[in-house]
Design a protein around this nucleic acid. Structure first.
Lengths: 145, 145
DNA sequence: GTACGTGCAAACTATTTGCCTATTT
DNA sequence: AAATAGGCAAATAGTTTGCACGTAC
């Protein structure tokens, strides 16, 4: 559960200075599932937390570097989505409409990748996997239209 | 096997006009595993096939629309890679060094995704999966450095 | 006080578009 | 001849950077 000071602790543990801007971004990412830099910028502006877009990018970059945040690209979109990273190797189920992001347990790729390594002679360094769909809420909304 | 007129046929069947530019791009994609728009532009320029970068983008867009070409983004890269699409639902093993792209058989995600659909209430619309690694040739080159 | 973070404007990269000409069918 | 494609330059979108100032530690 997101306590008032969790974000500050996260930052401190990562060796980053605790600033209003970073706190606000972490807090926002905790509520929303995943957001583009611009969406973060807008959302904070609406909350009266006005600050530069480049600050958003820089904050996200440091957070990513420290492993607190990760990014991906939604299919057919040109901008990147940022989201809080949870420990370990995990994949997401992502709603293509509202961008809600659901953490999945398990990874069907690892065994597959090992098998492939053997056959292909490649040294496997990683993989990307994301599953896309419509979440229940968005299915309903779509039905109404 | 890439016959002289295969590309032309591909274009005709797709309902696209057969032009020097599109032919050259298809031919190039047949040799190389996957290339960015800019790499295609450069490669063609070196072959004396000089033409505009916007033509490359437009040609790739039509080819993609007709299902002949597909694109992805390599991890940590800001530009997109284009490659010839092979029929059906397939995934790739990609060398992070030379971008060689190997078609894989089978998909470990489909069963996983179905199971998830049941549990999550999402309607699954698709998934992305790519496996990254170093190909045998690049492993050797790296060993020499 | 020092190191790091922020704001703003300008730069940059990848990609797209407008408009007019050229080529394919 | 009609329809589609290409060339060039300019526009756009997203992101990054330089530099002076501000803030956390």
């Amino acid at each position: 559960m997101p306590c008032e000071n969790c974000q500050a602790d996260l930052l401190r543990r990562a060796g980053l200075k605790v600033t209003r801007q970073r706190m606000a971004i972490l807090e926002l990412l905790q509520e929303e599932e995943s957001l583009t830099a611009d969406q973060i910028f807008m959302a904070l502006r609406e909350k009266g937390q006005e600050f530069g877009l480049s600050t958003v990018y820089r904050a996200l970059a440091s957070l990513e570097e420290k492993g607190l945040v990760s990014r991906t690209e939604l299919p057919g979109s040109s901008s990147q989505c940022f989201f809080l990273k949870s420990g370990g190797h995990r994949h997401h189920l992502i709603c293509i409409r509202c961008r809600k992001r659901v953490l999945l347990d398990g990874c069907p790729v690892e065994a597959f990748a090992e098998e492939i390594a053997g056959r292909s002679g490649f040294v496997i360094t990683g993989h990307s996997l994301e599953i896309f769909g419509l979440c229940p809420a968005c299915q309903q909304e779509d039905a109404h239209v």
